[in-house]
């Protein structure tokens, strides 16, 4: 208990420094964009983010996403919903109430739901079944707009991911439905659709590509996927909030000119399974920090 209080105090003190940090990322970019070449602008932007990451490493509590880890933890442990219970009975795959290490093995098959779920899908399941929240209400507008705070599901997922920090992504893939989710996710990664004919692979298959100045991670390559997949959920400086992996996928579909994909549905879960399997062995370093 005293240790928890101490941690809480440290968090509060360090929150004061959070608001200065976005400047570090954007400041360098603004100064150099106009007179220099594109490569210099990219270098400056990358350097800014690198510097930001170094500061985060030196002081992990300076990541604004830690606010959502805190909030997610409180949401998890507080009795809530029509049934006024906490999520301590929620089984993330390692038994009711076991949060530590659970994220490293997600997505996985859950017998009670008879389907494969990722962190967000499982959290929604527990909020509905244990706490009595209405599923439809949870799934309506589940993501914040730019500049707005991450919603409860996102904060809970951020907390859950944080509790597996330092562990390696290790999907179990024992159950046939887990194997099917992986195969489906891979097929979907290459599925072209929408009025732009885009697939995930259009932007995320080849090495060293970028959209405008933004570098694109080739997510079908294990070496590259291992570097980035474990950083989600992540604080996104450009939108001022934490995005979960499902929110990030939803955002890709927005850019692909697809309609709004349902949170926790089969497509984002299968894609997450594919990403996590491709990144297998990569370290979880969540919440991360993105441009």
């Amino acid at each position: 208990m005293p240790q928890q209080q101490e941690e809480g105090r440290v968090r509060r003190v360090r929150r004061a420094t959070l608001w200065l940090l976005p400047w570090v990322v954007t400041g360098g970019l603004e100064i150099t964009l106009a007179p220099s070449l594109a490569q210099d602008a990219i270098d400056a932007s990358e350097k800014g983010i690198q510097r930001y990451r170094q500061m985060l490493k030196a002081d992990p509590w300076s990541n604004p996403a830690m606010l959502d880890v805190d909030r997610g933890e409180a949401l998890w442990k507080t009795p809530r919903g029509p049934k006024a219970v906490s999520l301590d009975g929620c089984d993330l795959g390692k038994g009711p109430g076991v949060v530590k290490g659970a994220f490293a093995e997600l997505p996985r098959y859950f017998t009670d739901a008879d389907r494969v779920m990722d962190a967000e899908a499982r959290i929604v399941w527990c909020m509905e079944k244990l706490q009595g929240f209405e599923r439809a209400a949870l799934l309506k507008n589940p993501y914040p707009g730019g500049g707005r705070a991450t919603k409860d599901i996102g904060a809970l997922a951020t907390y859950v991911a944080y509790e597996s920090n330092g562990q390696k992504l290790m999907p179990t893939l024992d159950h046939p439905k887990e194997k099917e989710a992986l195969a489906l996710g891979e097929a979907l990664f290459f599925r072209r659709g929408g009025p732009m004919d885009f697939a995930c692979a259009t932007c995320h298959a080849d090495q060293g590509k970028r959209i405008r100045l933004q570098g694109l991670p080739p997510l079908s390559k294990p070496v590259e996927a291992r570097k980035v997949v474990g950083e989600w959920p992540a604080y996104r400086v450009s939108s001022n909030h934490v995005m979960t992996m499902e929110h990030r996928i939803y955002d890709c579909f927005w850019q692909m000119r697809m309609p709004e994909v349902d949170l926790g549905s089969e497509v984002p879960v299968a894609l997450t399974m594919y990403l996590v399997k491709t990144a297998e062995g990569g370290e979880i370093n969540a919440p991360g920090l993105k441009r």
Binding site: R191, D262, E266
Partner: peptide, 13 residues
């Protein structure tokens, strides 16, 4: 199979 997954994942479209 992919089409089934897509249909079920965009119910609010």
């Amino acid at each position: 199979r992919m089409q089934t997954a897509v249909k079920q994942s965009w119910t609010q479209a």
